[in-house]
Design a protein around this nucleic acid. Structure first.
Length: 597
RNA sequence: GCCUCCUUAGUUCAAUGGUAGAACAGUGGUAUCGUAAACCACAUAUGCCAGUUCGAUUCUGGCAGGAGGCUCCA
């Protein structure tokens, strides 16, 4: 978490009030929601008497600057709850009154606390801030006067709809986002940074580097892996399989479709149907394409009687699932409708559980680090209001999760009540180029499936027991992980992951034969090599290879033929001189072994 | 799904109420070249469906997609 700069946060908050004041001037009938500080800026939610578009933003900004020039003060006043209610009802601000009622009832406006029914200390006085004609219920603090706000230090960026209190059932308000910094220079730096970030966008790089495509006209959210992207995927998968066998997993394969009976027992038809694709009829039975792998793995478990001696079982599968995700949530490779989870289920006795958790947590960190991710946030999600499984199971599971995190010295955030209804979980999220977090690794307890499928093992006592089942994915999905990886490396994959490691370029047509010899040597040594002997100038071929971010470019011409060498150009370093062919092969094979570990 | 914006060759961009122009990529030639774009020629596009209009790529509406948010993400 970045260190918070209180000063700029106060300014951002004050600018958000300033924007509200400007809105009030322009639309006297506006009803105000809330207007907090966010990363890099602020927003404010309103109900406006008319539709506004991006074209209205400059007008609002202008009004804000007018107000700054008027040197308005941010006047603080402490009033009783009753008084505040009177003030806001006179102003016809029903959202503010709702907030006041929450303060009165629960001592807070925090939705999570209210939902859990935790009553905070009683509040009988609140503070209100007045700027010009705009009066707001607000804890503050604020700047003293609009004079302290640099009129060039902020910009309104976008309009979006947002549900009141973040609840889909509530009305949608108009949200205006803005960014604000200390001065114009910092503001410009922010926009430059955004531009830089957009160059790393995996959707852009995916096209430029010919890695993947999505054909919206033939199915949004469905990914086509091109040869180069597929090559990376093969490397990812090979590494994944190898490491899973090393870590005591077995790999399984299961079908892509299953009869409705399976999904009825699993409960998916009851609580997940809207995310599943419609069934197909085969021999008068309904078959559903799988949105999850768990029910299939459970069938393998149930194919015979299991003893405590068989446990723990660790079954992994690169399982491709299809989920109907709402149209508005799709995002390149990061959120799709068909994806391959690097899924596994751990089935163990209660006694084995803590050790299994620790192992799987360490495994997931190892995988993330292997692929170059060092900066990620870990979340521990606890029991939600609606849940299955008894309280002691939850407690025991959460305890084990916390203990594993502590033992591995990992910092984490607690997502109170954020667990799935069937169990607590640890999620590891990595950031994309724009700083948005995407959940990749997930380690989830499942108290539901073992129950529904009546999973059992025979214990030492000869009696039947119910095993623990832990569902986990390390990369999350290959699609999302690949997308995150493209952005992380900005398309310049390290040698061991690069789809093409070496490209050979001929200076002119008469060097084709020698180039082909070098190509064969590299290919036979397992190097991912391409030969580009087309009739283009060498400069052009180099430019093209550089744009493709290929780690090593070999130029061959008369000189190299004579000395049985290649002229080596390394990504990021340029021409590093000639090297004998066999030495280059040796060097590249050595370098490939070094992962980012 | 909801809110705002967007949709012109394979790609990046231009123009227009009288059906579109360029660059790169592509194809065919010429050149045979030493570390980030050789030269010439050719071919290629207004997402789909309605409406308004003599005429729509341009205006309006719907649909389909996309971007950024919101919600969701078992």
């Amino acid at each position: 978490m970045p260190k918070k700069d209180k000063k700029i946060e106060i300014k951002r908050h004050s600018i958000s009030h300033l924007m509200a004041a400007a809105i009030l001037e322009l639309y006297p009938k506006a009803v105000f929601g809330i207007g907090p500080v966010i990363e890099n800026g602020f927003y404010y939610d309103f109900i406006l008497p008319q539709k506004i578009t991006d074209n209205d933003l400059p007008r609002i900004e202008e009004k804000m600057r007018d107000l700054i020039a008027k040197n308005l003060s941010y006047e603080k006043k402490t009033v009783s709850l009753e008084e505040a209610k009177k003030i806001f009802s006179e102003l016809k601000q029903h959202f503010k009154i709702e907030l006041l009622e929450n303060l009165e009832k629960y001592g807070t406006t925090e939705e999570e606390v209210i939902q859990k029914g935790i009553r905070k200390e009683k509040i009988d006085k609140v503070t209100i801030y007045t700027t010009g004609n705009f009066v707001d219920l607000c804890r503050g603090p604020h700047v003293k006067s609009t004079k302290q706000i640099n009129p060039e230090s902020f910009k309104l960026t976008k309009i979006a709809g947002a549900y009141w209190r973040g609840d889909e059932k509530n009305p949608m308000l108009t949200r205006i986002y803005g960014v604000a910094f200390n001065n114009k220079k910092e503001l410009n730096e922010y926009f430059t940074k955004l531009e830089e970030a957009s160059k790393r966008d995996h959707r852009k790089l995916g096209q430029e580097l010919d890695l993947f495509s999505i054909h919206e006209e033939f199915g949004p959210g469905l990914v086509y892996w091109h040869p180069k992207g597929a090559r990376v995927r093969v490397i990812m998968e090979d590494f994944w399989r190898q490491e899973h066998y090393k870590n005591g997993y077995d790999i399984v394969f299961t079908p892509h479709i299953g009869k409705s009976a399976l999904w009825e027992i699993s409960g998916h038809l009851g609580f997940y149907k809207e995310n599943m694709y419609n069934p197909m009829e085969i021999d008068k039975d309904e078959y559903y394409i799988k949105p999850m792998n768990c029910p299939f793995h459970i069938q393998i478990y149930k194919s015979k009687i299991r003893s405590y001696r068989d446990l723990p079982l660790r079954w992994a599968e690169l399982g491709t699932v299809y989920r109907y995700e709402k149209a508005g949530v799709l995002n390149g490779l990061l959120r799709v409708r068909g994806f391959t989870q690097d899924d596994a289920h751990l089935i163990c006795t209660p006694k084995q559980m803590p050790d299994e958790i620790k192992k799987v947590l360490d495994f997931s960190i190892f995988i993330l680090k292997s692929f170059g991710f060092k900066d990620f946030n870990i979340y521990l999600s606890t029991k939600p209001k609606k849940s299955v499984g008894n309280a002691s199971m939850w407690q025991e599971a959460i305890k084990a999760l916390k203990k594993a995190l502590k033992k591995s010295k990992l910092k984490y955030f607690i997502d109170e009540g954020g667990g799935a209804f069937y169990g607590p979980k640890i999620d590891i999220k990595i950031k994309d180029a724009l700083g948005r977090e995407w959940q990749c690794s997930t380690i989830q307890f499942d108290f539901n499936m073992p129950e529904r499928f009546e999973m059992e093992y025979i214990g030492e006592d000869g009696k039947k027991h119910r095993p623990y089942m832990i569902h986990r994915a390390l990369m999350g999905s290959l699609e999302r992980f690949f997308g995150a990886m493209i952005e992380h490396f900005a398309g310049a994959f390290p040698l061991w992951l690069a789809p093409v490691q070496v490209i050979i370029l001929t200076v002119s047509q008469r060097h084709k034969k020698y180039a082909n010899e070098v190509y064969k040597i590299l290919l036979n040594n397992g190097v991912r090599v391409e030969l580009w002997d087309s009739n283009e100038t060498i400069s052009k071929k180099i430019r093209e290879a550089e744009l493709q971010k290929i780690p090593y470019i070999l130029v061959v011409g008369d000189r190299e033929i004579k000395s049985k060498s290649v002229a080596v150009r390394q990504r990021g370093k340029g021409d590093i001189g000639a090297m004998k062919v066999d030495k280059f092969v040796k060097t590249i094979l050595e370098l490939e072994k070094i992962k980012n570990r």
